[in-house]
């Protein structure tokens, strides 16, 4: 059994860092050492930032996004188009779409997708609030920006059925060849979907 080379406080720091995505025990040691060496410039500010975040982060009661205010910054932004709601699985998807900057709409975070294997059922998702939001008179379109997986699209169809009786247009993201994608390397299913959903050039 390897003996520890540092005190329990440092070992605990390493153990916690190793739980972060992308970090294993070895890279966690490197990160911990990096923080220790830059104690004033990095470790102190990081500790303070994490403490503040821990205290202030809340889930937006409107859309399910995470922020330090409720409603979140996006829901409070008057410049955003309130007639469009973009439905995403997770906050990471919301951030990805915001990075793309393709539209300035409101969002709705489901908190997952229907997944029998993981035991995720409709009642575990943020669906009631979505139906309530879609029923508002200003909402004209709901964009289902869910993953192109069987679970993601099962959830998309389930939501489409939930909203079927409402006067809103339900759309979804296109499926097909990604930018930079070479046809030779794409799976047959993606190619078939791209052919089916071809557009006029």
């Amino acid at each position: 059994m390897p003996h520890s080379v540092a005190g329990p406080e440092i070992e605990r720091l390493i153990q916690l860092l190793a739980r972060l995505p992308g970090l294993g025990p070895r890279s966690a040691r490197r990160a911990a050492l990096h923080l220790i060496k830059r104690r004033e410039q990095l470790l102190g500010p990081l500790t303070e930032a994490i403490r503040v975040a821990h205290e202030r982060i809340v889930v937006c009661s409107e859309c399910g996004n995470v922020d330090t205010a409720d409603p979140c910054t996006i829901c409070r932004d008057e410049r955003r188009d309130a007639s469009i709601i973009v439905v995403v699985e997770d906050v990471s998807d919301l951030w990805a779409l915001e990075r793309a900057g393709a539209l300035t709409a409101r969002y709705h975070v489901l908190g997952g997708v229907l997944s029998p294997l993981d035991g995720v059922r409709p009642e575990h998702l943020n669906l009631d609030k979505l139906v309530a939001r879609a029923a508002r008179p200003e909402v004209r379109e709901v964009i289902l920006a869910l993953n192109a997986t069987v679970d993601g699209q099962t959830t998309a169809h389930y939501i489409t059925e939930l909203l079927a009786h409402m006067p809103v247009r339900v759309t979804r993201l296109a499926h097909g060849v990604p930018v930079g994608g070479e046809l030779d390397y794409l799976d047959e299913g993606t190619l078939a979907a791209a052919i089916r959903q071809r557009t006029t050039f």
Partner: peptide, 28 residues
Amino acid sequence: EPGATRSARFIDVPLALYGVGALAALLR
């Protein structure tokens, strides 16, 4: 190794998506 890839066909058909879920649930 991939065999028959059907899921992309299923994505447009709710019956197929629900069917896959039901098939898996019964096989469990």
